[in-house]
Design a protein around this nucleic acid. Sequence first.
DNA 1: GGAAAAATCACACCTTCGTATGAGGGCTTC
DNA 2: GAAGCCCTCATACGAAGGTGTGATTTTTCC
Lengths: 140, 140
Amino acid sequence: MKKTILVYGISLAALVGLLRFVEYRFFIHDLSLEFYVGTVALLFTGLGIWAGQKLTRRRTVLVNPNFALNETELRRLAISPRELEVLELISKGLSNQEIADQLFVSVNTIKTHTSNLFLKLDVKRRTQAIQRAKELQFIP
Amino acid sequence: MKKTILVYGISLAALVGLLRFVEYRFFIHDLSLEFYVGTVALLFTGLGIWAGQKLTRRRTVLVNPNFALNETELRRLAISPRELEVLELISKGLSNQEIADQLFVSVNTIKTHTSNLFLKLDVKRRTQAIQRAKELQFIP
DNA sequence: GGAAAAATCACACCTTCGTATGAGGGCTTC
DNA sequence: GAAGCCCTCATACGAAGGTGTGATTTTTCC
């Protein structure tokens, strides 16, 4: 988190610097204010997406009125929030690669999560994991 | 089915013949009636298992009071009984090999079924197939 | 601020899954 | 009895999944 904020600050400074540089170096004073503002907006939108991604990462499980998560069992099996998240995506039929893309991590990471998950759920395959997770009310 | 009945009949005749042969050839008249009856029972149990296997292969889907199979959709997608059977086993978390063992066919056959199934369900993976099958009420 | 837990990633290796293609036998239906 | 569907099986190949090991970074919590 500290690193995230640091990177954000540095990027911010760097972008501002770059804009100033471009502005002076290539004599684009005559470019319209709209263009300038647009560019800034665009760049900071990207930066914002990245930072928001990092900072607001879902810590709580999604709420569903018709589904009560069995947290007792979840704790008993020592399943971490991230693992539960991966489990949900597995149950939605996503591949490891797709899960990795969605969570912005590498496939290897997902494989680690699934592997640990299978150990904790005492299963051998993702299809079994889905079954088991439903039984245990980890997923709707 | 005709073939099954034929094989059953032939086997039946063959076994009776074999028993008579053994009975006379090796002078085992003195073996107890219990032994004789036991042997017959054993052999015909095996034959019965085989025939029953062949003849009573589930053509109808299992009945579950809390689950109504969506047969309309099933027909619309032209999913065959065998495919549905495989689909159910997939949803139970079984591997292709395990399904093959359970249905007494080869893995290749199961692969063919699953492949056709995925086409009809318009999915790419078995986990997706499970999701889709639940949506369509093909499985509980 | 240090220990513990959680999350991240890599890489090699093996297994299982899925696709493509072709083929043969059994049953139904016209 | 030919056409068509279903079920069966094979083989080969590429894609995805799963295991084992080890390591670093982040986050949490006392």
